[in-house]
């Protein structure tokens, strides 16, 4: 068989190749490169093999940050997904009210992250912030700069405020995609409101909820800007999440080697979690039941 050699095809492949190379492969290789060396100065580096990985994986400070992070992400999911779903279910379905609600709901999503942090930092202050003053007036001692619990609550509420709209909008879109006959059939079958939710809406929302959970998990697991602006990771290290820990390591202490090794582990953790989540959700209720 005669094969046609057409070298012009390379011109079509090269742009993609270059894009991927510069956007993903080169930076990733740089990180890998750092992770196996000890960089002492601009011209001085020593090959250390897997030492940084070993050190990172056994670092108790990092373990603490990891579990703190995991706890945060799980709480965020446990609040935002049901809340977003609930909001989506109660939103009006048509008319100007629907448009108005959607715009109001989308507003927090449009605010830059550091601004969100600043808003809540001021809002929560015990001396001048509306929220902080109000809570203290109610007789509850609240100070997010000195109390770890208060700091946690503030970061959580901020994240819920910022990101529940995303879940709500996704779920809302999913709900609108359910054809009317499903609801009509449910009426004819005398299904209760709960049965409609359980047997029609929830199964039909499986796709969008999967996306919502994945997005919220990834984003909350990588959260950086908002707590950094709000609490700076404190008090102590009570709100120091993984990203911030990493930044302190790489920028603050200039430990590029461990930071690189840690970045790669971080990346793999997120990948692993997302894969597990996705597989579990996709397979729930898919069995044939025979």
């Amino acid at each position: 068989m005669n094969k046609t050699f057409n070298n012009k095809a390379w011109f079509l492949v090269i742009p993609v190749f270059l894009c991927v190379a510069f956007s993903a492969i080169v930076p990733l290789m740089t990180v890998i490169n750092y992770s196996v060396q000890d960089v002492l100065g601009p011209e001085q580096r020593v090959w250390v093999g897997l030492d940084w990985y070993r050190k990172t994986l056994t670092d108790p400070e990092l373990h603490a940050a990891f579990f703190r992070q995991l706890e945060f992400s799980l709480i965020v999911l446990a609040i935002e997904v049901p809340l977003g779903l609930g909001v989506a279910l109660t939103l009006p379905t048509q008319g100007w009210r629907a448009s108005l609600c959607l715009v109001l709901l989308a507003l927090p999503l449009l605010i830059p992250w550091n601004v969100v942090g600043t808003i809540w930092q001021i809002f929560g202050r015990g001396d001048i912030g509306l929220g902080g003053v109000l809570i203290n007036h109610l007789g509850i001692n609240y100070n997010y700069t000195s109390e770890a619990f208060d700091a946690w609550i503030t970061v959580l509420v901020m994240d819920v405020w910022h990101w529940t709209p995303l879940v709500a909008l996704l779920a809302y879109a999913g709900l609108r995609a359910i054809p009317d006959p499903f609801y009509q059939a449910a009426k004819i079958d005398a299904a209760s409101r709960w049965a409609v939710f359980r047997y029609i809406q929830l199964p039909k929302l499986r796709g969008v909820l999967t996306i919502a959970i994945l997005l919220r998990f990834m984003d909350s697991f990588m959260i950086y800007t908002e707590p950094f602006v709000l609490t700076g990771g404190g008090p102590g290290d009570s709100t120091t999440f993984l990203s911030q820990f990493l930044t302190t390591l790489a920028v603050g202490r200039f430990d590029v080697g461990p930071a690189a090794a840690f970045s790669l582990i971080y990346f793999l953790i997120i990948l692993l979690f997302c894969f597990v989540f996705y597989t579990v959700i996709q397979n729930t209720g898919k069995g044939d039941g025979r």
Binding site: P179, P181, F182, Q184, A185, I188, Y199, P203, K204, G285
Partner: peptide, 12 residues
């Protein structure tokens, strides 16, 4: 009872 153009079943 009413049967619609597209089959309506409860998936799960």
């Amino acid at each position: 009872a009413q049967v619609f153009q597209f089959p309506v079943i409860y998936d799960t």
